[in-house]
Write a protein that binds this DNA or RNA. Structure first.
Length: 472
DNA sequence: ATGTTC
């Protein structure tokens, strides 16, 4: 695949074959040579063939290979011009995302109680594959309420405050959720997993703010140097996974009926304005709300332990998803259009002044939370005026080794010792899980963020370094 | 990511 360098941080894939629009890759030469670039670039080109795709098939600097779409892919389809929705453009972990909490504790005060805090968090925050969660739902009826209301439902039940909801994307719940579109099997899988981290790259980290790049934005977000924070990264567990599986199956079956053909069956799609398309979006919104409630409950569990151990409270900074499709209005060619924006391993980055922002953030823009790999930095970014890719940016470091490669190349015990030497306490991780998540398996998150900023997608606000990790 | 191959 030939890449044309338009700027040091933006590369173009010319239209070829059935591509309806070009590919636009935000990256650097160095990032493009880290890991396998050819396979995700082919996926960028494949996505460009989707009916109704507008402007370009975009990839963020943390791009890597995924199911159908690349992870780090952004694609917007025009709803009124035959635009499609594709579950592969959201991914299996629907509304997987990050919640950041901040305390008024400094790093020195934490040091003597860090071990005790990590022990407590390891006990109070359910993690790992399979069972164990903060809640066990009474049944499908309670599940329907949660799928409709997301974090709001958790807050109604006493797990948080209205102030928390103000700092959640969509004020804690995606609208137009259709709980009936979540299958019985998905509901069954989800009943005993609300309030659990899961496994893989999901984690809870205790972090310290090491750098502030933008004082005004950091202050609006409630962040300042040397502050102890807690970051939670998790998703919609088995319920989201099952929901994706179910709807991919239906949508794939109905494609001939709509006369739709795609270069890769993992790009199965349906017109947004079709029964299958609407059914998927309703189910996706419901699964997204499960993910939002999940993070609200984990916040409550972590806050309680943090309060007991340190005597301080944790305040909400923001909660943002990086796997979601949204129908949004954007100006294209001087005309307002209704677009279905798929962000898969990509984060919305609302600019200052956007109407969807709460009053406290209107002046500076929306916080973008970018978790790094284990033992490295995480970043807080914000949106910029005229942000490219429909106001989207990166979501993390991005894999450069497959799970299998990483597991083979890493000795878990050595990694654990190395992290401890760096001052990072790790709890809960299985040997296999730890090895798969080795920092060497990921791109350099600082290089990713530099490319995202250089490409005009966002700007940096703060950097955080981990001191403790709870993993599945 | 995921009851890591319905």
């Amino acid at each position: 695949m030939e890449l044309i360098e338009e700027t040091p941080y933006r590369f173009r894939v010319e239209r070829h074959g059935d591509m309806r629009v070009p590919g636009m890759v935000f990256a650097s030469r160095a990032l493009l040579s880290s890991g396998e670039a050819q396979k995700p670039l082919e996926q960028v080109a494949n996505v460009a063939t989707l009916p109704g795709i507008t402007e370009a098939s975009f990839a963020m600097p943390d791009m890597h290979w995924g199911y159908g779409f690349p992870i780090g892919g952004v694609a917007a389809t025009d709803v009124r011009r035959g635009g499609v929705v594709s579950p592969g453009g959201v991914g299996f972990d629907i509304s997987c995302g990050v919640r950041l909490l901040a305390s008024d504790l400094g790093r020195d005060a934490l040091r003597p109680i860090l071990e005790q805090l990590m022990e407590g968090l390891n006990r109070s925050v359910p993690h790992g594959a399979g069972r164990g969660a903060v809640w066990k739902l009474s049944g499908p009826k309670e599940m329907a309420a949660l799928l409709g209301e997301g974090s709001r439902y958790a807050v109604e039940q006493g797990y948080g405050t209205d102030t928390d909801l103000e700092r959640c994307e969509d004020y804690g719940a995606v609208g137009d959720a259709v709980p009936e579109q979540v299958s019985e099997r998905a509901v069954q899988r989800g009943l005993e997993q609300v309030g659990s981290l899961g496994s893989g790259n999901h984690f809870l980290e205790v972090q310290v703010v090491t750098d502030v790049y933008d004082n005004e934005a950091a202050e609006a977000f409630g962040l300042r140097e040397d502050q102890v924070c807690v970051m939670i990264h998790c998703g919609s567990r088995g319920l989201g996974h099952q929901t994706c599986t179910d709807h991919v199956r239906t949508i794939e079956k109905r494609m001939p009926r709509h006369g739709l053909r795609v270069p890769d069956r993992q790009l199965a799609c349906a017109p947004v304005d079709s029964p299958e398309g609407r059914a998927y979006l309703g189910a996706m919104a419901a699964a997204a709300n499960y993910s939002r409630a999940n993070r609200q409950l984990l916040q409550a569990a972590a806050s309680r332990t943090f309060q007991e151990t340190t005597g301080r409270s944790l305040e909400m900074v923001y909660d943002i998803s990086h796997n979601l499709a949204k129908v949004e209005t954007h100006e294209v060619d001087g005309e307002l259009r209704e677009l279905c924006v798929h962000r898969k391993g990509a984060t919305r980055a609302l600019p200052p002044g956007h109407l969807d922002l709460p009053a406290g953030l209107a002046k500076v823009g929306q916080p973008v939370l970018v978790p790094g790999s284990m033992g490295t930095s995480s970043y807080v970014l914000t949106g910029v005026p005229d942000g490219a890719a429909f106001h989207s940016t990166c979501h993390g470091a991005g894999r450069q080794q497959s799970r299998h490669q990483a597991a083979r190349a890493t000795r878990a015990n050595e990694l654990r010792a190395d992290l401890l030497k760096q001052g990072v306490v790790v709890r809960g991780a299985s040997a296999r899980g730890l090895a798969e998540e080795a920092p060497a398996a990921y791109k350099d998150v600082s290089a990713v963020v530099e490319a995202a900023e250089g490409g005009g997608l966002c700007r940096r606000v703060a950097r955080l370094a981990p001191v403790g990790v709870v993993k599945g």
